[in-house]
Amino acid sequence: MATPTQDWTNEQLLSDAVSKKDIVTFLHLNASHDFLVEYKLTGKLPTVVKNAKKDSLLEAYSSLFARQAFRGADEPSEEELMTAKNAAPVVEKKEVAAEVGPPKFTKTVLKKGDKSGYPRKGSNVGVFYTGYFEDGTVFDTNDNTKKKNNPLRFRVGTGRVIAGWDEAMLSMSRGEKAKITIEPEHAYGKKGVPDAKVPIPPNSRLIFDVELVSLD
């Protein structure tokens, strides 16, 4: 492909004698695709003309010759690319419904925390809690109203507690109190805890009133 000649004088380019459409058409026919991408001049001609400023087009026009960034002989012009794109068959996209299971937990905040001290995976936390079934029966507690009780301490996200707890702790900030409901598959699942002081039946949804009292 022969190098295009620069037909317009500077006076013509700066005047209304050469329109934005004239310059964009010239660039689309002669500039390489990478050059057009760099100057954000790809796309349909009317759209590019509408959005481009003439100062920017003049800069691109001058740069094209300075850098010799012309398209190769075998490279389609921008107009040819757009024609081919518009002629391409439209492939219908089928939406696949995502399989969404129940959440690991749901939480109701009873008392806001400091909104700054959030556990991370591996953080050591101290927690007071009361766990009960949906009928209100308490199966475990270290209720902090009894002074002899100490917080339960464990490292978050390390599997030391049921999965629902590991996830729920990451959403709480220091000092927060919350009611957390954990689905069976993220609690004790199909096995339950039959040998606990208060047995937990299989497939039990568990509810905990939890207070995050310390964070290291």
Rank of each mutant, 00 (worst) to 15 (best):
T3R: 10
P4Y: 03
Q6P: 09
D7H: 10
E11V: 14
L14K: 15
S15R: 13
D16Q: 14
S19C: 07
S19E: 09
K20Y: 04
K21L: 15
D22Q: 10
I23V: 14
I23N: 00
T25L: 08
L27P: 04
L27T: 06
S32C: 11
V37F: 09
V37H: 09
Y39P: 06
L41Q: 03
L41E: 02
L41I: 07
L45E: 12
V48F: 08
K50C: 12
N51G: 08
K53P: 00
D55F: 05
L57W: 00
A60V: 03
S63N: 15
F65D: 00
A66C: 12
Q68G: 09
Q68N: 12
A69F: 05
G72W: 02
G72K: 09
G72C: 06
D74N: 12
E79H: 07
E80A: 07
E80Q: 09
E80F: 07
L81M: 09
A84H: 07
A88W: 15
V91K: 13
E92Y: 06
E92W: 05
E99A: 12
P102F: 01
F105E: 00
T106L: 08
T108P: 09
T108M: 10
G113A: 02
Y118S: 14
G122Q: 05
S123D: 11
V125M: 01
G131C: 07
Y132V: 13
E134S: 14
E134F: 08
V138S: 07
F139W: 07
D143I: 11
D143E: 14
N144G: 09
T145M: 15
K147A: 14
K147L: 13
K148C: 12
P151V: 11
R153F: 08
V156M: 01
G157A: 11
G157N: 11
T158W: 07
R160A: 13
I162G: 08
I162M: 12
A163K: 01
A163C: 12
L170Q: 02
M172T: 00
R174L: 15
G175I: 01
I180V: 07
P184F: 00
E185R: 11
H186A: 05
H186W: 02
A187Y: 03
G189L: 03
K191S: 13
G192N: 06
V193N: 08
V193K: 10
P194Y: 06
V198Y: 08
P202H: 02
I207R: 04
F208I: 03
D209S: 10
D209K: 12
E211N: 06
L212H: 01
L215R: 02
